[in-house]
Design a protein around this nucleic acid. Structure first.
Lengths: 194, 194, 194, 194
DNA sequence: TATGAATGAGTTTTCATTCAT
DNA sequence: CATGAATGAAAACTCATTCAT
């Protein structure tokens, strides 16, 4: 296994643990044990716990950006794109629950981990946010969305999806995620239109 | 100052620090220093750090519930209630940014702090969630909202508000919160209708 | 209630708690709570926790000395005195288990509490030890005991009684204490004779 | 030095300090300082102070059991075994005073340290107690001892030895321990016979 | 005399990080 | 590269004692 692959394995393990137990309740020792390597080895791949957290979020937002970029590149109406995005996002949650949990519960909620004096930590999600901007702008330009305020549009999409994700993780949703797909996509689309 | 008032002062300080630095990065020593009391004194009022976090969230959700209850009791259409709620919520954010931040960034995101084997930690927000249910049920019964799925309705309201709060706290909103009031209320109402 | 009586009440409570939970696991607060007085009041009667422990052991050994003195003053053979002492001691254990437990488990075992640079802490049990000496000397002089080594005689009496007390407190004795009286008295007497 | 040997070294140090200063007056820092290692290192070998206390008592009772087992396996009368046990025990005290002190003053007297809800803490001395049972049963079966009550027999042996140990540790014995050997063994044997 | 809030030094425990092998 | 023992700074929590009321 080369260095790159090993880093990927470490990130995957860290991701799982961070999302399950939280960043602060997960020790470097937990991560090393899970991987059956020594703590020292961990530090050969990542210079600090924080750098591991950072690499993990880049990995997650990268994956999310790819999915969204693929949809954005299709020649379909923006409302269709929203539907596809919701569908693809729910699929993503089910296949990689730890990634989404990590995104919302660790990255967005423990800002102090990712921000330092120079950088506010947003660059880590830049790729994904840019694709989201593309989707919104596309909709606005083609008049499918009338909500012109980017931040409100952003919140209509990511706020609703984030909240549903939270409820899903808490186990309170009564039906499987898939069955909510269309309803949710429609709610988002309506929020984006006037 | 009596015991009750002192507890309130401690909660206020803790709230401010927890919301600014996160629960784990805030030490009992930080809190004591801010209040210019000793750590020992802190423990005369709260038996543990966690009990302080718990008291703080009860305080916050209690306040939020009061505001929403007041609106729920008015004889106005549910859509109006949404508008008033958004207005009152934005007002609340501006007066008590630390409370809202604490609610979203600490309480909702660090579930492990508030959950134990018996209790999933939701009881702490029960009052507020019940008022939210009242608002949604009112809208559904009066046919102002057609979204009958409670969880989607819940996410349409709290997801959008939560996301806007996040962006506000990150300082990326270009205009003051108030100016977004109506737009956001309308987006939420649309999401709730079909 | 006068000062003397109040001191006695405090000692009684402390004794009970120290013997049940150990000296270090008992807080001044525990003692105050049990008595339904404030911690401050405690310090009006005893200047420190240690002084309370000291007063308590004086109280206990004083009581034990009185019982033994009464027996010593009788005009009966030393072997009879041993029998009576065992009987009286078992009676004492049953009426005041906390006192005996305190004597063995706190006083004799946590020497660091009672000793300081000047005093080794034995003066606190002086009265009782002197009566024990009287009993042993009586037996030796009247040739009822042939064990002339005081320390071995002392150990034959107090060692056996202490061990039985320990087993009693641990709840492993199968019959009630009284039924062992004679057997134990005889074992002690035999140990004292050659 | 391997892990096993290091654990042994730590136990030895802890034993010395616990027996000299008591369990509660000995800090993990004291132990680390004595060994010239850091506190953190201590916790790499024992997960808690209590686990160290527990390991220490197992160590002590293990040693005591070995000595007694060796004597039990000899083909000599039970009374002889008592003599040998007393001799071996006194030898043990002189070589390892801290072990015996620890056994009596910490283990037997601070029961709250070793007991939890499941286990009363006696299992830690099981091996030694079993050998003591063997010795007593042997004597009873061969009619060397007529004291058939196990607990009184137990107290005759361990009570007397414990008390002598106590006096030895307090420094009040006038002659060296060895010179008391036979006298004490005889006193014990008499106590066991009728 | 009684109170009980305030204190602060002291204790156990945790864990990211380092470094010699 | 891999290891894992060692580190030590930091954190939560305890409690005997004091003192103003």
């Amino acid at each position: 296994m080369n260095k790159r692959q090993k880093r990927a394995k470490i990130i995957a393990s860290a991701l799982r643990l961070f999302s399950k137990q939280g960043f602060y309740k997960t020790t470097m020792c937990d991560i090393a044990d899970t991987l059956q390597i020594s703590e020292g080895t961990l530090y050969n791949y990542f210079p600090s716990k924080m750098s591991l957290a950072t690499a993990a979020i880049s990995h997650v937002t990268g994956k999310m950006a790819i999915d969204l970029r693929y949809i954005n590149n299709k020649s379909i109406p923006a409302t269709e794109k929203i539907c596809e995005f919701v569908r693809s996002y729910f699929c993503f949650i089910q296949k990689n629950p730890e990634m989404v949990e990590y995104f919302f519960q660790v990255y967005l909620s423990n800002r102090e981990i990712f921000c330092d004096e120079d950088d506010c930590g947003f660059s880590l999600a830049k790729e994904f946010i840019e694709e989201l901007e593309r989707l919104i702008n596309d909709g606005v330009q083609t008049r499918h969305f009338t909500q012109e305020n980017f931040f409100i549009a952003f919140s209509s999409i990511m706020g609703i999806l984030g909240s549903i994700t939270f409820l899903y993780n808490e186990g309170v949703l009564q039906k499987p995620l898939d069955e909510h797909c269309d309803e949710i996509a429609q709610a988002i689309c309506r929020a984006l239109q006037s």
